[in-house]
């Protein structure tokens, strides 16, 4: 089943005259992990932000179920975002340094207003346990946490609204390799358990290859190749994909 269908999406940053997303069309199916790979500045994150309407697209359409996300009102979009979440790359920059971890997660419910009062705290504890932390973290500040622990908080926050689709924007790029493996394990496990759908953004083909079902290769705003992980890794067609695979030190 198609969960998201994106057609002819364009975004140009006028001031710099950069076509960050130049006619993107693709579908994401329920329960799959779709990889998006490309160098810094090729438009991966812009595409992620466009899908969640964190920035406005120039033209195109994004169908989530029957709704075109680009046409619905802001308040409808806000409600829809409950099902569409994001985990950011930098766990240092994406947590408010002045908020306790409990507050970070409970804030989600203040915005979406579906859980109130004491229930919020119980939910927060439950989420922290899901991501391998626990109640003891409620009162901690993000500065007291390691990179891996912060990323777990980021994941808990994304899970708070029980989404069906999560964009993982380079979630392990800033982590040490052993911690990277722990976080990837957690993401794989959650995906299977909750039948989540991921758009997994990374510049590391090793990470993409280990977790994704399908891959899209992006270069300066355009899709240059897409297909199943097997096809892309075993039999890349496009020169750019080949050069990425060569650089990835996969041996």
């Amino acid at each position: 089943m198609e969960l998201l269908k994106i057609s002819n999406l364009y975004k140009t940053f006028k001031k710099h005259k950069v076509s960050a997303v130049d006619g993107a069309s693709f579908s994401i199916f329920k329960g799959e992990v779709l990889g998006l790979v490309g160098e810094s500045g090729c438009g991966k994150t812009t595409l992620a932000k466009l899908i969640l309407r964190l920035i406005d697209a120039d033209k195109g359409s994004i169908f989530y179920k029957d709704k075109d996300l680009l046409k619905i009102s802001h308040s409808d979009m806000r409600k829809t975002r409950k099902s569409l979440q994001i985990i950011f790359q930098d766990p240092y920059a994406s947590l408010d340094p002045r908020m306790r971890i409990g507050e970070v997660i409970e804030e989600v419910y203040d915005i979406h207003k579906d859980v109130t009062g004491r229930e919020k705290k119980n939910k927060a504890i439950e989420l922290l346990e899901t991501v391998g932390l626990g109640e003891t973290y409620l009162q901690r500040l993000s500065s007291e946490l390691s990179g891996g622990e912060r990323q777990r908080v980021g994941i808990a926050r994304a899970l708070a609204t029980d989404p069906e689709f999560i964009i993982c924007d380079e979630p392990v790029s800033s982590l040490d390799i052993s911690i990277q493996a722990q976080i990837l394990n957690l993401l794989i496990d959650l995906q299977k358990r909750k039948n989540l759908t991921y758009l997994f953004i990374s510049h590391d083909l090793g990470v993409i290859g280990s977790i994704c079902d399908r891959v899209i290769v992006m270069q300066s705003g355009k899709f240059v190749e897409s297909g199943s992980c097997e096809t892309i890794f075993r039999n890349p067609k496009h020169e750019y994909t080949k050069s990425l695979l060569e650089s990835a030190l996969l041996s």
Binding site: I177, S178, Q180, A181, Q182, L184, N185, I188, D189, D204, L205, G206, V207, G209, S210, I211, C229, F233, L250
Partner: peptide, 15 residues
């Protein structure tokens, strides 16, 4: 812990 295509979809034997 090295992620790779060969390890596909399996959990890492992480530390």
């Amino acid at each position: 812990s090295i992620p790779s295509f060969e390890h596909r979809k399996k959990l890492f034997n992480a530390i």
